[in-house]
Amino acid sequence: RFRLSPAARNILEKHSLDASQGTATGPRGIFTKEDALKLVQLKQTGK
């Protein structure tokens, strides 16, 4: 289970993504908004 920032949680839910597909870069291993946006971008480019 990942620790998600509220913004990251919202983005992941909106795009039906799972945090385990990305890398948490925030302090103390928190999955940040920026991490979520990177994951969305990867999904949109098909990689």
Rank of each mutant, 00 (worst) to 15 (best):
A24E: 07
G46R: 12
S5W: 00
A7V: 09
Q41A: 15
G26A: 03
K38P: 07
L17R: 00
S5P: 00
T25C: 05
R3H: 14
K38S: 14
S20H: 09
A36G: 04
S5I: 12
I11F: 05
T23W: 05
R28L: 11
K14I: 11
L17E: 07
R28D: 15
G46W: 03
H15V: 04
A8T: 06
G29I: 07
R3S: 11
F2T: 08
K33M: 08
P6H: 07
I11A: 07
T25D: 03
G29C: 01
A36F: 05
L39I: 08
T25Y: 00
G26Q: 04
V40G: 03
I30C: 10
L37A: 03
Q21V: 08
L17G: 03
L37M: 11
R28F: 12
V40D: 10
A19D: 07
A8Y: 00
A8G: 12
T45R: 13
A7M: 06
V40T: 01
F2W: 00
I11W: 01
Q41S: 15
S20V: 07
F2K: 10
P6F: 07
H15C: 02
A7C: 08
T25M: 05
A24M: 04
F2A: 03
L17K: 04
T32K: 04
A8P: 10
H15N: 14
T45H: 11
K43N: 13
G22H: 04
A8S: 06
Q21F: 04
K33F: 02
T32Q: 06
N10A: 14
L39Y: 00
E34V: 04
T32N: 01
Q21T: 05
A19N: 07
G26M: 05
V40Q: 09
A36E: 08
D35E: 05
R9K: 15
S16L: 02
Q21M: 13
L4Q: 07
Q41F: 06
T45S: 15
L42V: 14
L42W: 09
Q44G: 12
L42R: 12
S16F: 06
F31S: 08
T25H: 03
F2M: 15
K38N: 09
D18M: 06
T45Q: 10
G29R: 04
G26W: 00
K38M: 09
D18F: 00
S20C: 08
H15M: 12
R3F: 15
F2P: 00
R28M: 13
G26V: 04
G26F: 02
L17Y: 01
P27R: 07
L12G: 07
V40H: 00
Q21A: 13
T32A: 05
S5M: 13
H15L: 01
G46D: 07
S20W: 01
G26L: 04
R9W: 02
R9F: 13
K33H: 13
K43F: 08
A24S: 09
T25R: 03
T45M: 10
F2L: 05
A8Q: 03
Q44L: 12
H15G: 09
A24T: 05
P27W: 02
A8E: 11
T23V: 14
K43T: 14
L42A: 15
A24D: 02
R9Q: 13
I11Y: 08
R28K: 14
F2N: 15
T23N: 10
G29Q: 06
L4T: 10
R3N: 15
